[in-house]
């Protein structure tokens, strides 16, 4: 069985055997840190590997990700026409012209049904799913409902062998909820700014459960308009 990677060299180097399809990745990061860029890298890698990629746009219209991919010379038309790249609009509500659109942004049941429909229509294919960002969908929902939804959803994704990346914007949800939610993921990435206001650097913390213990390593990274995310050499920090 083939393993999956993010498509970010410095990050993939730390994954050893890669990720299994059916794994769930949690990406949590500051606003403007490059979470969507990471999502774009993940999708580009998936397309090259023959995966079907589903992108759920919650924070911007799907057109923003199309433009982003196009800037990296990804032939989105070819992939969309062959059903290998699918956009779900969870941003524009009633105004959306997309084939798949969420009609009520405050209803997790409707989201669950829509996600299930999209995944069902791609049964038998190897699928990558990115929700950018899941925290936006959760903002006006009560915690118990979020946890019920989340458990059921992750269970379904795992059962269907979906490689999922859920993005969370730091500070949007209560820390306790993020912690509980985080436990359901196989792999976690934290992206944050560090340093002074005038000399900030981007940091990427890679975490995973290994031998029943959570281990992580921290890396500096930059964003290149040509190559996307570039991770610098290991900083040697572990927790």
């Amino acid at each position: 069985m083939n393993r999956a990677y993010f498509g970010v060299e410095g990050l993939d180097r730390n994954l050893e055997k890669g990720l299994l399809y059916g794994s769930q990745i949690m990406v949590e990061g500051d606003s403007g840190i490059g979470k969507t860029v990471l999502a774009g890298e993940f999708i580009k890698e998936g397309l090259r590997c023959g995966d079907t990629c589903v992108y759920v746009a919650c924070d911007e219209p799907p057109m923003a990700m199309r433009e982003h991919l196009l800037n990296f010379k990804v032939g989105i038309t070819a992939y969309e026409e062959t059903g290998r790249l699918i956009f779900v609009d969870a941003y524009e509500e009633g105004e959306s012209l997309e084939k798949y659109a969420l009609s009520d942004l405050r209803n997790l049941d409707k989201y669950f049904a829509l996600e299930t429909e999209v995944l069902r229509s791609n049964n038998g294919r190897r699928v990558r799913l990115v929700v950018d960002s899941l925290s936006t969908l959760f903002t006006s929902i009560d915690t118990p409902d979020i946890l019920d939804f989340h458990r059921a959803r992750i269970k379904q994704l795992r059962k269907k062998g979906i490689l999922a990346m859920d993005i969370f914007v730091s500070g949007v949800l209560e820390p306790r909820l993020v912690t509980i939610t985080g436990h359901l993921y196989n792999f976690m990435l934290k992206m944050s700014f560090s340093g002074s206001r005038h000399n900030s650097v981007r940091l990427l913390q890679i975490g995973k459960v290994k031998s029943q213990q959570f281990v992580s390593s921290r890396h500096m990274f930059t964003i290149s308009p040509v190559y996307g995310i570039l991770v610098s050499a290991d900083m040697g920090v572990s927790e």
Binding site: V74, G75, T77, A78
Partner: peptide, 21 residues
């Protein structure tokens, strides 16, 4: 832009490319 949709190196009989504006 041209994309390679299938590659012979992945087990196919040929590589297939789609070029679109």
């Amino acid at each position: 832009i041209c994309e390679e949709m299938n590659c012979q190196s992945m087990g196919g009989n040929y590589c297939e490319f789609l070029a679109m504006p």
